[in-house]
Simulated scan of single mutants.
Amino acid sequence: MSKSVSCILITGANGGLGLGIAKYFLEHDSSCFVYLGVRTNRDHAESVVSDYPDRCATLTLDVTSESAWKQAVTEVEASGRKVTVLVNNAGNHDDHLLATMPKSSWDQVIDTNLNAAFMGSQAVIRGMMTERFGRIINIASLSALLAPMGQTNYAAAKAGVVAMTQSLAKEVARMGITVNALCPGYIETSALDHMSADQAKALKKSIPMRRFGRASEVASAVFFLANADAAYITGSTLKIDGGIF
């Protein structure tokens, strides 16, 4: 990379996509330090830390808690580092038809996907302003652009992430900070484990490339956007979906 990424914080880092992003940075930039933001379950994240003990650490972080974000940033700064790249990757979905969707399902999905990205961005943005450099990369979803039935909560949250990305990008562009969003389609992670072989086969037929994406293919896009060579790209939304939309 033409400018070293000194410190990257990845949320939802115990899942397949978060782990894939972390490993990509660790394998392709020997100078970076990676914080893996996790809430309670951290077994997979700890295995990455064991492989890169001098360049990687877990960070306890409930992305839906403003105080937890403040504590996480304080912990990073206490180590002598500042977050220069934030990957808002944490998220989940709880699908229901709107007519029967519990209010708790709506609130929880909005909180985890949209409010968390807001709180995370706000927690790091002042430090980035001080450094006159920063990268915020929001992992949205293809559902933000092509909303499926049964995901009114998730699609609304991810569409909000895309809009937030565009607005924030304008606010901080003059300070050397870029803000971009990625919209992955079907990616080979545990999120697809519920599918039967027949369901997966049928779904692949709907994808022009006839396959699911790999976590590394999303990670490489994150890595590029974090690179100083991508300094003139901001407010953009990149879909990674094999040509679905």
Rank of each mutant, 00 (worst) to 15 (best):
I136A: 02
E188S: 15
M129H: 15
D111E: 13
Y24P: 08
S196Y: 06
S4R: 13
N227E: 08
A57D: 13
F245K: 06
E171W: 12
A57W: 08
K204S: 04
T58V: 14
D51S: 15
L146S: 15
A117L: 06
L17E: 12
S220V: 11
G37D: 00
N180V: 09
I21V: 13
L203R: 14
Q166I: 09
Y232W: 14
A72S: 05
F212N: 12
D193P: 05
E66Y: 05
G16I: 07
V76A: 03
V179D: 05
S141E: 08
N14Q: 06
K23N: 15
A159V: 02
C32V: 05
T100N: 09
L146Q: 15
L97V: 13
T112S: 13
A13K: 06
V172M: 10
E27I: 04
S105Q: 08
L225M: 12
M209T: 14
P148M: 14
K103V: 13
A173W: 05
F223W: 09
D111I: 00
A22K: 08
S220W: 04
Q166Y: 02
T100Y: 04
A140M: 03
G15C: 10
G127H: 03
I207T: 00
G18N: 04
G37F: 00
G120T: 06
N138C: 11
L9H: 01
S167N: 13
L238I: 14
A117M: 11
V73T: 02
E217Q: 13
I244S: 10
D241E: 12
V38K: 05
A156T: 14
N180I: 07
D43R: 12
G127P: 01
V38F: 05
T178G: 07
S4Y: 09
A230R: 11
S105L: 03
G243C: 09
F118A: 05
G16Y: 06
D94N: 15
G243Q: 09
A140G: 03
G18K: 03
F245C: 07
V85K: 00
A99T: 14
T74E: 15
P53T: 07
V172D: 07
E188M: 14
N89M: 01
